[in-house]
Structures are given as C-alpha cells and as structure tokens.
C-alpha cells in the first residue's frame, strides 16, 4: 500500500548538513538546479503559516515524462509522510491511498467495501483513474481530428481547383484528341491518371514535410519543456491513413474531372 500526501512547501537553501540527524527529502532535479542544491545539503522547509523545519537533501530525481504535467513549471520535492504531516499540522491525513490486491481478490467488492466504510473517500480502479487522466488528451485528439477534417476539405478544394484549371487549359487539346478519334475511355484515363499522380505526389510531399516538421516540433517543445516526450509523431499507421485519404481524394476528384473532360462534345470543348 502506498500512501500519498501532497502539499505546497517553501524551500530555502541553508548549506551543508549538520551533525545531528535531520529528516531527509528528495528534490526534483529542476528544483535542485534552481536552488543550487546537491545531496548532503540542508534546506529549510515550511508550509504556509507553519514553522520552518530543516531537512537534508538525500538525493535528486527526475519527474517521469508525463504529458499531463509537461506544461507545469512548478518545483517539487518528496518528503516522508510523517514529516509532511508535521509541517502541515495535519496529522493522520493523506490525499490518497494506492491499494494492491492479493491475487484473486474481487476488486469491485473491495471498492464497494472502501466506499461503505470510509465516507469522505472514493475508491477508483486504476483504469478509471488512468481514463480520467487521459480525458485531456482525448479532447486534444478530437480537436486534432477536427482540424484534420478541415485541412482535408481545404486540400480537396485546392486539388479540384488545380485540376479544373488544367482541364480548362486543355480544352482545345481534348477537343483535338476527340476529333482525331481518341476514345472517351483513353481521354478519361489520361485525365484520371494525371489527377491521381498529382494527389500522390502531393501526399508524398506532405508526408515528407510532416515528418520533417515533427522533428522540428519535437526538438522545439523538448527544449521548451525540458522533457523527453514526443509531441508529434508520423507513425506508419498515420502515414498509411494519410496516403489512403490522399489517394481517395485523388480518385474522387480524378473521376469527377475525367468525366468533365469526356462528357462534352469536341465542339463544346472548343467553345470560348
């Protein structure tokens, strides 16, 4: 069982450890760096409105790379629970318990028992906690998907514009081909293939730019947030989805534009 109590405390550097045994704490690397503290140094620690106590720095640690806390720029230290409770004047108080069950134990029954016995506490399964913590990222993910939808519609209109322009540019050429006996089928395939090629080249270029962009984004935000997290990633699955959407867009617009090219008579194509 793990018992956790968190609180805001003030830290102040005082120098090397004294002879008498002092309670120990761990400092997050960033906190230690900011206060210029090393293991073995002593610090004054106080809570709001409480008396100060001296601690000795037992060591430093790095916060695990966690997306939910990456933007927080707070300073952290880990104290033993009794020491922190003393500082806060809140004996026998904790924020949460982590409970490990014996193999075979009925988790739901344990949770119901905790809820029944301990009013003021709520028991949650680890998955629920993880799920709740992930809500922020689900929202971000939904937002990104919506942006992707907008981008795809924009790209489709852009591709359509380009192809329509190309077709208009080729009206006379198309009319001439029809007049010399080139079949509608060949003309359709010609236009369709060209549109598809344009979509494929655009998709490939977009993927390359996306891949290069993700490198830049990761480098920038890793530097900003001092973390090892990846912020943007072009995974094989994502590349496949992008390629599929790009191809599908190309096929749909290719069919549309190919049809536009062959549906008119050569005379109509020649009209100004």
């Amino acid at each position: 069982m793990i018992i956790i109590l968190t609180a805001l405390v003030a830290l102040a550097s005082v120098g090397d450890a004294q002879d008498s045994p002092l309670p120990e704490l761990l400092l997050e690397a960033r906190t230690a760096r900011t206060l210029s503290l090393d293991p073995g140094d002593t610090v004054w620690v106080a809570s709001l409105g409480s008396a100060e106590r001296r601690f000795v720095v037992a060591g430093t640690y790095r916060r695990p790379a966690d997306p939910s806390t990456v933007t927080l720029r707070d300073y952290r230290a880990i104290l033993h629970i009794p020491d922190l409770q003393d500082l806060l004047g809140a004996r026998d108080r904790v924020d949460r318990f982590s409970v490990s069950l014996r193999p075979g134990a009925d988790r739901n029954a344990v949770m119901a028992e905790i809820d029944r016995l301990a009013f003021g506490a709520e028991a949650h399964a680890s998955e629920e906690v993880a799920d709740a913590a992930s809500e922020t990222f689900r929202v971000v993910s939904r937002f990104h998907r919506a942006l992707a939808g907008i981008t795809i519609s924009g790209s489709a209109v852009f591709l359509l514009c380009l192809v329509v322009l190309k077709i208009e540019e080729r009206r006379l050429e198309g009319a001439a081909m029809r007049e010399i006996g080139i079949s509608r089928r060949t003309l359709f395939l010609w236009t369709f293939t060209e549109t598809l090629a344009m979509a494929a080249i655009g998709t490939a270029a977009g993927l390359a730019i996306g891949w290069a962009g993700s490198g830049v984004i990761n480098a920038y935000f890793r530097h900003v947030y001092d973390t090892t997290l990846a912020f943007a990633r072009v995974t094989p699955e994502l590349a496949l989805i992008v390629a599929a959407i790009g191809t599908l867009t190309g096929v749909v617009i290719g069919v549309f534009t190919g049809w536009q090219m062959v549906r008119s008579t050569p005379l109509r194509l020649r009209e100004p």
Binding site: I150, T151, S153, G154, V157, F158, L160, C161, V164, L165, E168
Partner: peptide
C-alpha cells in the same frame, strides 16, 4: 465562368475560415 469562380471562392473561403479560426 461562374463555376470556376465559385470553386476558387470556395478554396479561398476554406483558407479564410481556417485563418479566422
């Protein structure tokens, strides 16, 4: 060329909508 004009206005419209957003 009203259809071509509409298509291009639609293209700019998507770009403008994204920019405004």
């Amino acid at each position: 060329r009203p259809r071509r004009l509409a298509l291009f206005v639609a293209g700019v419209m998507v770009a403008a909508a994204t920019l405004i957003d």
